[in-house]
Write a protein that binds this DNA or RNA. Structure first.
Lengths: 229, 229
DNA sequence: TCAAAAGTGTTAGTGATACACCCATGC
DNA sequence: GCATGGGTGTATCACTAACACTTTTGA
């Protein structure tokens, strides 16, 4: 079999579902399409894979170009290739989920620029292509991930209070958790370092701030320990 | 942006890790490559995606062409696209895992034909391309699947004894289980129908044969029930 | 002094684990 | 009658779930 085979190849794109967390809301980064097809519609950031470009590299490149965002965590979600999903022709998309820290101010400037915008997950517009379907898959994956692996910490600031962490987890999972049980569980996991620092500028008792002990997590993980919230 | 863009497209292939279970062994279906690159090496069955062909269709087509196998269960595993993984040029592979029932005789003829062969998972040859890596991912996924979803039943005959089921699960997970606890668990899941039929031709007390109640599983599943062994 | 969230233990229930013997059958 | 695997119950332990009040702080 020779490599230069005759029939036309499908196009290959990468797309990313980028999650951020701000103001107790889970948000997704979308871009407004500037050209056909679906001009003016919102879509997942992404684009064509470059020649001899690795898939994760392509995702990071596209994200940086289109939105100025450099995600902390990148994970392959799956591939979509049903004929007709792109009116321009047969196109395979390899989709990724990405997590970004939206701590306060820095991210704002980047992402409000151009035609990229953060949408709350519960108020998403209709999306171009089959991106709605990809997003549904990403949402499911995120829910699974947040209770199965310590991904929440990539959405929060480096230092966070236990209540912030709990609220994030509740937001992602879509169900409330018991405060005491949640704290007990985390304490028993032995992966949170109390810093001795406290919230500032809050009109109430300040909560202690914690840091995630990734080294400890990696160690326990290697020993076969299974994280679970 | 026009669709006929200038730079060359990567090739797109599909590959499948096909699992079967026979003689208390978990097996994988491999084909011997008839041409370069890696001529004579063993590889996962698969091939180039056709024009306007859907990904699962392509997998089924390739499996049928190359091995005569029509899998019961097909599930996307992930995509591999690191430059250099195919010496012929930049190639994206969308990999699937597939499950096949190897009940007794029928499968034998199909699969021993041509240059396709079933290998025990613990005695695999070196594989072409990065197929070893794909296989590792598939193995991990299968372990996760077997304890999380009722996939074992697609590897067993329609009627099976509880011991057969337990042995299969132990084989996949690689650890022994307690017989009484296993049976208690399955009983409590309420998804196994005792048929009143029994093994025949065994030199000992015959075990009762059960059937998996998929309708019940679907119903419970829809109600939010989580299967777990 | 009020509002707001921080922080903290106990109990009951449920599910997981560990464990051993008798029974039926074919040879 | 013997070898082989089929089939069964109980006690303990660990984890989960439910639940309410006092403390601290800033305004």
């Amino acid at each position: 079999m020779s490599f230069v085979y005759e029939y036309p190849r499908p196009a290959v794109t990468v797309d990313a579902v980028v999650y951020g967390y701000q103001a107790e809301e889970l948000r997704v980064l979308l871009i407004e399409r500037g050209g056909p097809p679906f001009r003016g519609a919102w879509a997942l950031p992404g684009g064509f894979l470059g020649e001899n470009e690795d898939l994760p590299d392509a995702v990071r490149r596209e994200l940086l170009e289109e939105t100025g965002v450099a995600p902390l965590h990148l994970e392959q979600l799956g591939s979509w290739g049903t004929p007709g999903r792109d009116p321009r022709g047969h196109t395979i998309t390899v989709a990724y989920t990405a997590l970004v820290r939206l701590s306060g101010h820095t991210a704002k400037a980047d992402t409000d620029a151009a035609d990229a915008r953060w949408f709350p997950v519960d108020g998403l517009p209709d999306l171009a292509f089959d991106h709605g379907e990809i997003l549904d898959a990403a949402r499911e994956r995120l829910i699974e991930s947040v209770r199965t692996r310590p991904v929440g910490f990539d959405l929060l600031p480096d230092l966070f209070s236990l209540t912030e962490l709990q609220t994030l987890v509740e937001t992602v999972m879509g169900e409330p958790l018991d405060k005491r049980n949640f704290r007990k569980k985390l304490q028993s996991l032995d992966m949170l370092i109390p810093t001795g620092e406290y919230e500032s500028g809050v009109p109430r008792r300040a909560a202690q701030l914690y840091r995630f002990d990734r080294a400890m997590y990696d160690k326990l993980s290697a020993e076969g320990f299974q994280f679970r919230l």
